[in-house]
Design a protein around this nucleic acid. Structure first.
Length: 746
DNA sequence: AGCACGCCGACT
DNA sequence: GTCGGCGTGCTC
């Protein structure tokens, strides 16, 4: 017997450990324990699912454990996908195992076995893959002996259909398993089990549409994209098109070109469950072969879509940020719609930005990357000016529809939530049989309740915020941790029974509007009224079919919907987002206002917008009102230059939290000193700001501090953080996180 | 992240 | 004398 060389594999573990681990492979699993599959492994005293990265030729100098089982028959990722995942792990300073776990669909882990409770690793979940039985006729069409009438009918149907699922036969014939059993025994039909994909579309058919004639600007943009597609090299573009300028049509025709080259297309949208109209347009143009990935899918549905993509059965993938990890091969074009949207940034765990990763994956895949927006990021426009992105512009609305007229309604000294300027405008709109949207990015009835006696606001005991009063629910609610108490409540400070309501939310607006315009049919849409699955669509449908006159809502009504009947838009408290703890507060305010303003007059009637604000002089509001994104860009860029924020620097935010305040504070101070020391030793150009209490200095019962790092180069920033992580003192009572390129620092 | 081990206070 | 608090250290 020759010396048997033990088979050793490298495994990434989905834990906050930046190392990988090695295992021996039992002989009987040698053929299966290959790169790209998951393995069930012993880990400490636990058993968990790891990801096999590959073989190891040099055996490590310590004892190795054996894996229990290989969980997948086929690889879950390709070499080029792994290269992308490694890049993500490196850039965001996050363990590869965690990146893989984030990148793979949650449904795949239904058969995970974790913890020490389950000792039998051979028990398979079997829940993730759905199957059906399909019947098929096998014998030639000759007269069959001794069949009952029902069996004969069933046979006829099967022969006619070729193959047919059992569920379909059951729908047409009722109970039919005795007949099917007999037909199978006679050798006339066979039943086989086949995997089915749950269909998140439902079965509704879609009207086909055809490419539309492009405006000269659209055509020029498309020509540039097609030329880049022909080159089959990485080519990043910024498509800056005003609201209603027909960006989607450009996307569709560029995708068509990519498909014609036998390549596939990846489309990222901010939150697809909020943009059914966009998905419908894709389906109408391309029919089947579209996979959808978004947060509204169940784990099983998500896994099914993922498998369809992996097997090459979808040529277009449309999805929210996690779709950047879709297992799509031969990507010809990646489109990021509404590229300025903050929701492309994941706010916890692996804090990746799908908009940025689109450029990274596009470079690796030699694809065209198209970032589209009516209000591009300041950093994107800057990149375009400096030749990093090729700029395409659509400066006009389609069919030469004019931009809406916008008036400012200053609210200084105005006591009501709705400006007296807005009421006659609403009445005129209703009288003309048209519709209105009232936008306020704040839900609830009153922002907070204040004690009439001692002036203390009603605050959350777990978070450093005031409670929002919800009148319909009869509760005061914390919007950060869902703490709720019955309202109105008494003052916790002095016991006084009288609490004053301050600051209006959408619920209050709806209430006031019912009094101000009693003839109107009013609809409110915010996360309080769109709880159930499908309620979102039902509310929108009532607006589309004209059975509502006024839609009141938060930012969820600002995006992605075309309401041709809407001619009036009211914006309440336009300056609200200026006060956010975010260096992009002005940019976000400008973007949000521009989006809302763009909702008016997308049909034939011209639009009118009334913007209520206490801060009508601010450049974000002024320029949004004037539809002047160039002026906004110049002023905002000047501001960023003065304070040294992106694009003039790169940022990272280090966060620390714990249940008692003092240790968190001390820990953050220690880390800041350590960082300062490391920075000197290595001569890195990084500015270390803080530690400071986080804007939400208490959240869900945890005290929070943060350190902001600023640097002229990405590399110095990540070298400093990596150096810290290498000599990181282990303190398990305090949680730490690293946020590279933070977009908000709450 | 778990889940150990380990070394100090209040209990039968 | 032990039960158990949570500090800190390891997991192929």
């Amino acid at each position: 017997m020759s010396n048997h060389v033990p088979h050793i594999i490298e495994v990434a573990i989905p834990l906050h450990l930046d190392r990988t681990f090695h295992y021996r492979v039992p002989r009987e699993m040698e053929g299966q324990a290959l790169a790209g599959r998951r393995a069930f492994v012993p880990f400490g005293r636990r058993r968990l699912t790891g990801y096999i990265l590959g073989n190891v030729t040099e055996p490590p100098p310590h004892e190795l454990k054996e894996i229990f089982e290989v969980l997948d028959p086929e690889p879950l990722w390709t070499d080029s996908e792994l290269e992308f995942f490694r890049w993500v792990a490196y850039y965001y300073l996050h363990p590869l195992g965690e990146v893989l776990k984030t990148a793979l669909p949650a449904g795949i882990n239904i058969q995970d076995r974790k913890g020490s409770g389950q000792d039998d690793p051979t028990v398979s979940g079997g829940k993730a893959i759905k199957t059906e039985i399909v019947y098929r006729a096998v014998a030639p069409c000759e007269p069959a002996p001794h069949l009952g009438a029902k069996a004969a009918d069933i046979l006829g149907v099967i022969r006619e259909a070729g193959d047919i699922p059992a569920a379909e036969l059951r729908r047409r014939f009722g109970t039919c398993s005795p007949q099917l059993k007999r037909l199978a025994e006679l050798g006339l039909v066979t039943g086989e089990t086949r995997e089915v994909y749950r269909n998140p579309f439902g079965d509704d058919a879609v009207k086909r549409d055809t490419p539309r004639v492009l405006s000269p600007h659209q055509q020029a943009a498309l020509d540039a994209l097609c030329a880049a597609l022909d080159r089959h090299a990485f080519a990043p573009f910024l498509l800056h098109g005003v609201t209603g300028s027909g960006k989607t049509e450009v996307y569709l025709q560029a995708i068509d070109q990519a498909l014609g080259q036998d390549n596939n297309a990846l489309v990222l949208v901010p939150e697809i469950s909020l943009t059914p109209q966009l998905v419908q347009r894709f389906r109408a143009r391309f029919g089947h072969g579209i996979a959808i990935l978004h947060s509204g899918l169940s784990d099983g549905e998500r896994y099914d879509e993922w498998r369809r993509i992996r097997r090459g059965q979808a040529r277009i993938v449309i999805g929210a940020r996690s779709a950047i990890f879709a297992p799509l091969a031969r990507i010809g074009i990646i489109i990021v719609d509404e590229e300025h949207e903050a929701s492309f940034k994941q706010a916890d765990g692996l804090r990746y930005n799908a908009r940025d990763l689109a450029l990274v994956r596009g470079r690796m895949e030699r694809a065209v990357v198209l970032l589209g927006s009516a209000t591009p990021l300041v950093t994107s426009r800057y990149a375009a000016e400096h030749g990093k992105l090729a700029l395409l512009t659509l400066p006009e609305r389609v069919e030469h529809r004019p931009m809406p007229t916008v008036e400012l309604a200053p609210m200084k000294g105005v006591a009501t939530a709705i400006s007296p300027l807005l009421v006659p405008a609403l009445e005129a709109t209703l009288a003309a049989g048209e519709q209105a949207i009232i936008f306020l990015n704040r839900r609830g009835f009153a922002t907070y309740l204040v004690c009439a006696e001692c002036g203390a606001p009603l605050a959350c005991p777990n978070c450093s915020v005031s409670l929002t009063y919800h009148r319909q629910r009869g509760q005061s609610v914390c919007h950060y941790c869902d703490y709720a108490i019955p309202a109105p409540g008494i003052c916790p400070a002095c016991g006084c029974q009288e609490l004053k309501e301050l600051g209006a939310g959408t619920e209050r607006l709806e209430h006031d509007l019912r009094e101000l315009v009693p003839q109107a049919r009013i609809l409110r849409m915010d996360s309080d009224t769109t709880g159930g699955k499908g309620s979102h669509g039902r509310l929108l449908a009532r607006m589309s079919d004209g059975s509502a006159d006024i839609l009141v809502g938060t930012q969820m009504i600002a995006k992605g919907h075309d309401f041709p009947g809407v001619t009036l838009v009211g914006v309440v408290n336009a300056e609200a987002s200026l006060g956010m703890p975010d260096f992009r507060a002005a940019e976000r305010t400008f973007q949000l206002l521009s989006q809302v303003i763009g909702r008016a007059g997308r049909g034939d009637a011209p639009g009118r917008v009334v913007v209520q604000t206490l801060n009508s002089d601010h450049y974000a509001i002024q320029n949004a009102v004037r539809h002047d994104s160039d002026a906004f860009y110049r002023q905002e860029l000047e501001f960023r230059r003065e304070v040294g924020y992106p694009p003039f620097s790169f940022l990272a935010c280090l966060g620390f939290s714990g249940t008692t305040e003092r240790p968190v504070e001390e820990h953050a101070e220690t880390i800041a000193r350590l960082l300062t020391q490391l920075k000197r030793e290595k001569g890195l150009r990084v500015e270390i700001l803080g530690p400071a209490p986080a804007p939400l200095y208490r959240l869900r019962g945890r005290f929070r501090r943060q350190i902001l790092l600023k640097s002229p180069t990405r590399n110095d920033l990540r070298r400093l953080i990596a150096a810290w992580q290498q000599n990181r003192p282990a303190v398990s009572t305090i949680r730490e996180y690293v946020d590279i390129d933070p977009v908000d620092m709450m």
